[in-house]
Structure formats: structure tokens, C-alpha cells
Design a protein around this nucleic acid. Structure first.
Lengths: 193, 193
DNA sequence: CTGCCCATGTAAATGGTTACATGATTGA
DNA sequence: TCAATCATGTAACCATTTACATGGGCAG
């Protein structure tokens, strides 16, 4: 369960509440994992049971009380151990590709539309990352080395999304080319074979 | 739930059993989704309840009986509708990037090791896809157009994994460069700042 | 006075994996 | 005789999402 260790790393930087962890996870810098507040609160509770973190309740007047989580020695040790354990390649679940593989039922126009919508979303995401990588948490890095590591995680997102974008644009070209070649001597044909 | 429609597309090609669907999903051609047999059997049962598929039990002597699933008109309609519905970008859950982001605790050698192990796995996967794309189910495509679409799903995997590979190799270079620049006038230093 | 921020939680459902179970056939 | 293939399933668990719940402070 990687979420546990994603959280633990932040807790190791500073005592922090579940609420603030959620905000960090929503920032695009932590693009490589996401979680709902429900899951974060529950995972933190579980980590406390396992002795990886300690809880300190901070009384507040103008706001609801908050729980600050602090890493323990056991937590620090568990984190270090997990970090060095090789992980399997992530399992791919790519809804668009499921659609593409059965899209022969659609008109070329519709398929191109699917790909184009996808490309637009990729483009938005890319812009977000490239902007974000200039500002924000990267500056809180405690060493040049840590900043490089954080930059690398963003670079990964940029690299992957750029590859997907190129793929989508190229896919559109190939589909159009096929359409032109097969319906070249027919007016507005919708036949597929 | 994309699994339902991934299954439905195959069922629309030919009457097929859960067992054979599992085999298809395990072939690397369907790289974009995976499922255990448990999940496939249960999803098929659910699809039957919803009236998307019909079940025919085939009695066998030398082997256990099997259930052949056939698509219904309702199923065909549901599939077409889902295919044209734009999906959100997949949620990224990238365990290696969680490790990288907290890896300042490790020696450069250990980080490089992580990246290198990852790169090797990517390489294996890439070889698999590029081999597989020549043989196998691609030949069962019912039209030139369908074959192009299936090829595109494989191309996507190849493109993404190539991008990740380049990223990993580049990351190793950057880490080594940083190490050389910061410990240039120290013998075997392990300091990070 | 509307809606967002602060801050945490419970309950229920969905999606997915792992373990356990059966039992005949076939090839090394 | 050992393991794999054929073929399906249940039960329990883990991971994650969605919906529901509370309640004061603060800005437009």
C-alpha cells in the first residue's frame, strides 16, 4: 500500500494534519498518487495504530480542533525500508483504449472526436504541470538533491503525457489516411470493408 | 466500469466463455486492462442480470461444462453508447514515483539501482509488446480499420513505455551528474547538503 | 444570506485481489 | 506421479469512492 508511504514522507517533513495532507495531494505536484479525505483520515488512523506516527490534538478556538501527526522512529524505519523495495510495474487501466479497441462500430468522425477530446485533456494537464513545476512545493526541498528528485517526478508526468499526446495526434492522422484511401472513389461512403 | 465494456466487445465478436475471456485478457495485446478470473466470472453474471448478454450452457464430456456468453441487442446498444462517452484521464498511481520523491534518504547508488531495476522491467515489457504486435489476435480483426484500431492500442503502450524508459535513463544521468558536482572535492562523501 | 474554508469523521457501496475448493484429462 | 489445462465458483479481504453529517468563521 503505497498511500501509507506517500503520507509518511510528508509527515516526516513536518508535523501535519490529515486536512493539510489532502491539500498537498490535490496539488498537481503530487501527480503520482491521489486520495480522498476519507481514505487519508482512515489510513492515518491505521498508521497510528501500527505505531508509525504519533497523534497530537491541537485545540483551536476559531476553528475545529486538529490532529497533528508526527513520524516515529518505527515510521522512519518502515519508510526507508519500503522505499528500497522494488515495486511491480503499475497496472494499466486505460478506458480510452478500451473504447478505441471497439470503435470500429463508430464513424471515423466520432473516433477522431474521442481522440481529440482526449488530446485536449492531456494538453490541459501538461500546461498545469509545466506551470506548477516553477512555483510551489519544489521550493520547500531541503537540499539540491531532494529538489532534483521532486523535479524528476514531475518530469515523468510531462514525459508520459507528451508521449500520449503525440500518440493521439498520430492516431488521428492514421485514421484519416485510412478513410481517404478506402473511400477515395466513393462519395461519402460509410462502409467499413 | 470499463471492464464490463471490455468484456462486451469480445462477446460481440463471438460467443465466448469466461475462461477464454480470461486468457484473452492475459495476452499482452489487451495491455490496457486486466482482471482476475474471479472478477470476470462475477462481472459476466452481473451483465447477464442486466440483460446485456445471454448464457448458453454447453455440456462437455471430457471437460467441465462451460457457459457461452452471447451479446444481446441491449448489450450491443449499451456498448455503442459507452464507447462514445468521453472518459476522464486515468488516475495515476505510480509507486516508483512515491519512492523517488522520498529517496533523498538513500545513497545515490541505491536510487540509481531503483531506477535501473525499473528500466529493466520497462524494457522487458516493451520487447513483449513489439514481438506480440506482429503475431496474435491482431489477425482476427474483421477489417483493415479494426486492425488499425487494435494496432493503435498497442502503439500507445509502446509510446508510453518508451517515454518512461527515456525518463529513467535520463534521471540516472542527472543523479550521477549531481553527485559528481557536489562531492567533487571530497573523497567518498555521503553528505547531502 | 449564500457559499466557501476550516476539520474531522461514519456508513455504505464498488472495484479488485487472494485464498480456498472441486475434479477429470493430458503430457512430461 | 507431478504439473498443467480445462472450467467455474464462493468467501473474505483490501483499496477506493460516494454520500451523509456536523458546525463555527468569514467574505462578498
Amino acid at each position: 500500500m503505497s498511500l501509507k508511504y506517500a503520507l509518511l514522507g510528508f509527515v516526516d517533513m513536518m508535523p501535519i494534519s490529515g486536512y493539510d495532507l489532502k491539500k498537498l495531494f490535490d496539488s498537481s505536484v503530487v501527480y503520482y498518487w491521489s486520495a480522498t479525505h476519507t481514505q487519508i483520515y482512515q489510513t492515518l488512523a491505521q498508521m497510528a495504530e501500527e505505531g508509525l506516527v504519533d497523534i497530537e490534538v491541537v485545540q483551536q478556538v476559531e476553528h475545529p480542533n486538529k490532529k497533528l501527526y508526527t513520524i516515529t522512529d518505527k515510521g522512519r524505519q518502515a519508510l526507508r525500508e519500503w522505499i528500497t523495495t522494488p515495486q511491480e510495474l503499475s497496472i494499466v487501466r486505460h478506458a480510452l483504449l478500451v473504447q478505441i479497441s471497439w470503435a470500429d462500430r463508430l464513424r471515423t468522425k466520432e473516433i477522431v472526436n474521442l481522440l481529440d477530446t482526449y488530446a485536449q485533456k492531456l494538453h490541459q494537464r501538461l500546461v498545469l504541470y509545466q506551470e506548477e513545476s516553477q512555483l510551489s512545493p519544489l521550493q520547500y526541498a531541503r537540499s539540491k538533491r531532494e529538489r532534483l528528485l521532486w523535479q524528476l517526478t514531475i518530469d515523468n508526468g510531462v514525459a508520459v503525457y507528451k508521449a500520449e499526446l503525440q500518440w493521439a495526434e498520430n492516431a488521428i492522422l492514421q485514421l484519416r489516411a485510412l478513410e481517404n484511401s478506402t473511400s477515395s472513389n466513393l462519395e461519402k461512403s460509410h462502409e467499413s470493408e
